[in-house]
Write a protein that binds this DNA or RNA. Structure first.
Lengths: 349, 349
DNA sequence: CAGAATTGCGCAATCGATTGCATTTTTATT
DNA sequence: AATAAAAATGCAATCGATTGCGCAATTCTG
């Protein structure tokens, strides 16, 4: 039997009690010393810290969390982790959270209402201190989220928000995005500007369209309903919409596409038809998907500050966590127009 | 003063003690009943469960985790969340972990050695049950990972693995990837095939190069060292490498680029030089980045099964967690050659 | 130098769930 | 009916850190 083993493989992690025993002080003292509590003299504090180091002591956050009724963890739920926009948001959240000493737990809803309920409940059971979420497209009932409200656990929505729940919200300025795109096309000398809209039940898309209409109006251009085609904005929709627009008696000379996917598929279709971009037809997309920069011609688009959105979401959430009961705010992040080849008819000098 | 409030807003979450008091049984009984421990009669078990439901009881996983010394949490650390390959892996991990009742905590190293150390230590302190990691390019020392080994916490490496640490590992078959690419180029009738290699200290890149060399050999083509340019494979490297290759007395007529990024930048450079792809020069990339499908000409590349990799990583890890001490395995996932325009000189009939 | 003020530290309860062992209750056996 | 066996439940310690309160030691004050 040997006591006082040198520091080596021991079965269990050292705890404050082990340190206390070794130094013949109480566990409270050790705990306080490690927290730099002024009630402990500098001398003993140093002794304790040194031994803690030497023993390879690591605080057990589980125990601490239990005692403090706080997990120092925030949850984030997105439809699909594997989507550039969302992974960028997550990246931003992680950065801010990590710096603030929080852990980020992550789940995806796969855009399925019942998976969303399941993952949210799981986060709830795990006592996250707050939740950041972009809801699944399908979600109908929001009881699982109201649970958080009831227990007073902070909640931040981003991108796809739930209007009927009071909480911090972050969205991008789709209206101004649509406006800027349209204004840009006008500035480039395009005369008849068409628009591929997305499902107008989603605010995101109706705002873009409204921005488009507003810009036309402001430039004294009549809004022509026949120039707007509404679809789900998948790749095929782009092709169909272009066909429809080209068949018009008076077809457009520029198209504001609801997203980059349709912008791309339109471009490919137009190119095959021998229509030159941007000379014969200007194209602008939306969202700044990674590919829009590298395709040829590169696609002008609206950048949504996904990473920033994640950072802001985390900041709002941490703020709520640390000063509960403040009032809620809705942050509208600015969009940025990125002019690329697909719409740059007038070269800058 | 009113006791026996109806179920409504109460300050604190109900615990097993509250249930026990209400039912005049002990907390142990409640705990056991909720776990379906056979030592509790069906009758009392039902009574307990019903009341638990009615009171809106939710087990406190923190307390449970503390007692069980198990967090039911796995950690995943990647260089950058916001990269398609990694976010796809994460997505796969999340799927498997969630189904198995585990929570996934996530962090990014930003490819910085010291951030990696910090996040790994944080996960350690948070008592994750296991860790899945692709190491930062810069990492030099692996003490932070050896810590896990010492404490017998399962570890799974993927993509960028550490050879000197024994653990489960998952990589893609870079060797065969390189081989396939090269064979494909040969089959397409290209005669002199160059290669842009990545940092050869990383297995990933040296394997690709070795596959390239092997394919040449098998086809009776001499390996010409001057045709291989090594770099960090960022966009600019592609341009520099192409310039270098074109300046050779006997330049290549095809290039196997170490990744899609360099494949793209090379293509753009070549196009500006008036060199036609794939007619004058064949190009193949690696990784199947989303953009490689949509650029023009589309880029032939090697698909890495990222989502599958994540699933497998999670499976291996959970297996280790649940049956510790099994031997370690290295899983080599197959790669798939995706032939696109950039290398398809001979059209299929 | 006595008494007050300050400083340094320990006791013991707490967070909520789990579990080995002991005890009580019920059922079976002769 | 008495005892053995089995079933159901309770006691109390435990996981590791935190903290209000109280006691003891030290320093200060007049």
């Amino acid at each position: 039997m040997c006591f006082n083993q040198p520091i080596m493989h021991r079965k269990t992690e050292p705890t404050i009690h082990d340190i206390a025993r070794e130094l013949k002080v109480s566990a409270s003292t050790v705990s306080r010393a490690l927290q730099n509590n002024p009630r402990i003299s500098e001398k003993t504090r140093n002794t304790i810290k040194e031994l803690a180091d030497a023993m390879g002591y690591r605080p057990n956050t589980l125990a601490s969390n239990l005692r403090n009724k706080k997990s120092n963890t925030i949850g984030i739920v997105v439809p699909l982790i594997n989507r550039h926009f969302f992974s960028s948001v997550i990246s931003g959240v992680e950065e801010v959270a990590f710096k603030a000493g929080y852990t980020v737990v992550i789940s995806q809803s796969n855009d399925l209402a019942n998976k969303e309920v399941a993952v949210v409940q799981s986060m709830f059971a795990n006592r996250v201190d707050g939740l950041i979420i972009s809801i699944a497209m399908e979600s109908k009932s929001y009881d699982h989220l109201k649970m958080f409200k009831k227990k007073n656990i902070p909640l931040v929505f981003f991108d796809r928000v739930v209007p009927e729940i009071e909480a911090d919200k972050i969205v991008v300025d789709d209206y101004m995005g649509g406006f800027r795109v349209t204004q840009h096309l006008i500035d480039q000398g395009y005369q008849r500007i068409g628009h591929m809209a997305g499902p107008l039940s989603l605010m995101t898309y109706s705002d873009r369209k409204n921005g488009y209409i507003a810009a036309l109006k402001q430039n004294g251009i009549d809004y022509d309903e026949s120039l707007v085609v509404t679809s789900r904005l998948i790749s095929e929709s782009g092709v169909e919409a272009v066909q429809q627009l080209l068949d018009l008696p008076n077809p457009p000379d520029a198209i504001f596409c609801g997203n980059d996917t349709t912008a791309l598929s339109s471009m490919i279709y137009l190119r095959d038809k021998g229509i030159r971009i941007p000379e014969d037809m200007g194209i602008v997309g939306f969202s700044n998907e990674p590919f829009s920069r590298v395709v040829s011609p590169s696609i002008s688009t609206i950048a949504q500050p996904a990473f920033l959105m994640g950072q802001k979401a985390a900041e709002l959430l941490l703020n709520q966590i640390e000063h509960k009961g403040k009032s809620y705010q809705t942050l509208v992040l600015p969009t940025e127009l990125i002019v690329r080849e697909s719409s740059e008819r007038k070269k800058n000098i």
